[in-house]
Design a protein around this nucleic acid. Structure first.
Lengths: 112, 112
DNA sequence: CCGTCTCGTAAGCCATCACTTACCGTAAGC
DNA sequence: GCTTACGGTAAGTGATGGCTTACGAGACGG
């Protein structure tokens, strides 16, 4: 359910740079913006999207907003990816000739 | 290198549906399009992008093009995701009070 | 040989979205 | 108090890209 969001959010190169910037630890907005080729408001917008997707979390420290990574936000995406390995392994052998059984008189080895 | 591509390619909902449709086994284009709310040419375009990203592979069978999944295409994305877990685990402890050593007694309960 | 089914490609349209500048609230420093 | 640093938000713009219809090319059956 959230893996789709994570996918969409991390698809943007700049936003991914913001995200990866936080790998080295919590960081205020202006510090993130300094290392990037975009303006600070742009970074703010990206951080909002990332926070909304549960990929980062924000904490106020005086006038500063400290952003940090939330690895939990990646969990569902990781699970989704994992599901391809076992799922494919299984469904492959089972569905191999079921999916297509009609109109397949040719009888060649279709799958691997 | 390719994980960025996979990320961008799988970010689109329709394209992801095309991709997931192939989980159950190899499939010709028209069969994929039938189960989707978009036209067949749209599916063709998505398949082109997916193939270009190494996420599916195509095989000609007469007039039909049979598309099938390439789980290998997901490997780099998976690795990238994995890298967050160990990387964060490590850098976190080290940088924890270095980056922002200013009096940060309160942890957010990350790990020990 | 011709009609049909297969599918990819071209051209065009339209929505999404990332980025910009401008502005406003808030917290610390003088 | 005023000024400066920090950062979120609004409005407007430009480009990316996903979708459509129309067309062309190849394979098969009559």
């Amino acid at each position: 359910m959230a893996y789709e969001t994570a996918l969409a959010v991390l698809a943007d190169p700049t936003r991914r740079q913001v995200f990866e910037r936080l790998r080295s630890g919590p960081c205020p907005v202006h510090a993130i913006a300094e290392g990037l080729p975009v303006s600070r408001p742009a970074v703010s917008q990206h951080l909002k999207v990332l926070k909304d997707a549960g990929l980062v979390e924000e904490r106020s420290e005086g006038a500063r907003r400290i952003y940090s990574l939330r690895r939990e936000g990646l969990a569902e995406l990781r699970d989704w990816l994992d599901s391809f390995w076992d799922d494919a392994l299984l469904a492959f052998k089972i569905e191999a000739d079921r999916t297509y059984r009609h109109a397949k008189g040719r009888g060649d080895g279709d799958d691997e």
